[in-house]
Write a protein that binds this DNA or RNA. Sequence first.
DNA 1: TCTCTGGCTAAGCGCTTGCTTAGCTTCACG
DNA 2: CGTGAAGCTAAGCAAGCGCTTAGCCAGAGA
Lengths: 199, 199
Amino acid sequence: MSAVTDPLVWEHVQPAAARRLLTGAVDAFAERGYQATTTRDIASRAGMSPAALYVHYPSKERLLFEISLYGHNAALDVLRSADTGPTPADRLRSLVAAFTAWHAQHHTIARVVQYELAALSPEHLAEVATIRRAISAQIEQVLADGVQDGTFAVPDLPGTTLAVLSLSIDVARWYTPHRGDPAALGKLYADLAHRMVLS
Amino acid sequence: MSAVTDPLVWEHVQPAAARRLLTGAVDAFAERGYQATTTRDIASRAGMSPAALYVHYPSKERLLFEISLYGHNAALDVLRSADTGPTPADRLRSLVAAFTAWHAQHHTIARVVQYELAALSPEHLAEVATIRRAISAQIEQVLADGVQDGTFAVPDLPGTTLAVLSLSIDVARWYTPHRGDPAALGKLYADLAHRMVLS
DNA sequence: TCTCTGGCTAAGCGCTTGCTTAGCTTCACG
DNA sequence: CGTGAAGCTAAGCAAGCGCTTAGCCAGAGA
């Protein structure tokens, strides 16, 4: 699945031409990486000339930033929505399931989000770094809550937070649609993450 | 720590000029990525002109391949050496500890190994893919052995193998030396991986 | 129907890239 | 001492890059 076949994600991008450029950029950045992708390649995927890109976006880096910002916000929203359940164990499972499934389902956006930070301008990087800290904090908080109520055994809270995040984030590196159902993967990872911290 | 301050790793590379180019390439690829790194940048880090690179290496891609191949083989060797212990649990902990510590300690090489596969030529990629499959097989085998003797509960063997690998591999993405002792991180991850699969 | 504007293309600019070549220097060997 | 080869540099080549500009066309509005 590419960005193009998940059109609802980019419905907010208007006009349609800008959206085609954006989804073309997502696919190209996910496949080749930001640096190996050319504006000619992006424009071609959108069925346009290279100059058309600059009618809708001021620069190639700005295209990257729009994708990155959207993806970071979407991931944070997914976590915030998933942080439900009466116990830290329920919450952790729900968080990991949702975060993992998001990475699998949107693996092209996830690849851009997780691996193209270095290509962002300093101001843009600062903006997405804030969201990344909020994402980390959400996982760390639920682990802390579990330690507090005695249901989790976590000798190294920051280290374990990173490990839990790594499980989901690394999905962006290896996942392709033939690798199975994102929801099933989320369930598996929820279980694995829970076992990692069980008292 | 950069490749340059871990000189023993590249001792086999002769003459010294070729080694300086290689370690300059490791640092540049790890910092900026293969595509954003120029041959002028690599040469400059080695204290040479761009043309000197072509005295020792036929192309920029070949430099990448030398690094990738070395890193893949080193990682596989680390795993093979670590696969000791009387029980699958001991073996898994030792494997994960070693693999994680390798990624942290050699995080610049690890970054090139894990994130620059797309830049390799098809023949070179095939060669490192073989080593990657051997690495996966090693982890999968120890999990299978643990399931067989009843000490592990692993409902999804391929999925869990990927998850265990993700823990260690993702270290390449986030690790910097101020993030702590590689051996300590290895111990933590050994424990986390073990808990993931405990019966 | 006419005019204006926005979206687009063709062509191009200035710069950078990976790699090549001619020539120089140094060192080793006979 | 002379010669040859290896390692290197300065300079350059051909191709491609991100982005700009002039002009065209279609559609909307008066």
